[in-house]
């Protein structure tokens, strides 16, 4: 608290790291994950192939832990701390930014819980060998399905707002106009992920493969 501080506070680095990990690698992994799982929209076989490819990447454990689990754990864990320190006042000040602020906190919590459970059921219990059939089987449980939908929507929303926040908080969108554009970009990201995510769920649930016609042989 002295007037001669010269070094940033550790909380500065933690917050920046939190913001950064949200996008990279967590956001990027989410994109990859949705992309891989979209294979289900082609066919069950295609899905299983892609899944198999991913399960056989070299240094798999290191990549999983270093590039996915640990960053996610940090982003989520520190996020909970941030959630606890904020005090939403959206009822008194119902401005759009304030709604997003509040929603970002709660979707973060939901997404964190969902991802933890999702990892447990689809990665841990299956020893990383889930197939189209096992997932489709899980989806028959309506509770399971509902949680999937909520989790996917919360994650997508959280990423979309996160993109907006990232661009503002790193000063990449500095003017009011740029921040509006960043907001629109965030909305596109959030909506795109939501739509793709729901389509993938529908694919598993309804055994629906809209891109099956890509397969010519």
């Amino acid at each position: 608290m002295s007037a001669t501080e010269t070094q940033p506070d550790s909380s500065y680095f933690l917050r920046k790291l939190h913001s950064f990990t949200g996008l990279l690698p967590v956001g990027a992994f989410l994109a990859e994950h949705f992309w891989s799982n979209s294979a289900a929209l082609v066919s069950a076989r295609k899905y299983d192939d892609v899944s198999q490819d991913l399960q056989t990447i070299p240094f798999r454990l290191i990549v999983e832990w270093g590039a996915i689990f640990l960053p996610m754990l940090f982003h989520g864990g520190y996020g909970v701390y941030i959630w606890w320190r904020g005090k939403s006042n959206v009822s008194a000040y119902p401005w759009v930014g304030n709604w997003l602020y509040t929603a970002q906190r709660y979707t973060g919590l939901i997404a964190f819980a969902y991802i933890g459970w999702h990892l447990y059921t689809e990665r841990w219990l299956t020893h990383g060998r889930s197939t189209y059939a096992t997932v489709a089987h899980d989806m028959r449980n309506p509770w399971y399905l509902a949680f999937f939908v909520v989790g996917v929507l919360a994650s997508s929303f959280h990423l979309g707002v996160g993109v907006w926040n990232f661009l503002c908080k790193w000063g990449l969108a500095a003017t009011a106009r740029a921040q509006q554009a960043a907001g629109r970009l965030g909305a596109v990201v959030g909506i795109t992920f939501s739509v793709v995510g729901i389509l993938i769920i529908l694919s598993f649930r309804l055994n629906w493969h809209p891109f099956a016609f890509y397969i010519t042989k």
């Binding site: 909380s11 933690l14 917050r15 401005w95 304030n98 602020y101 908080k169 000063g171 990449l172 003017t175």
Partner: peptide
């Protein structure tokens, strides 16, 4: 770093100061 981009400040400022632009500029 404690700013979380709720952007309430800029709405509440009686002097219409572009506070969110300032925060972004300083952040950069």
């Amino acid at each position: 770093q404690d700013c979380a981009n709720a952007q309430n400040c800029v709405h509440a400022c009686p002097k219409n100061i572009p506070l969110t632009e300032s925060i972004a500029a300083v952040n950069r």
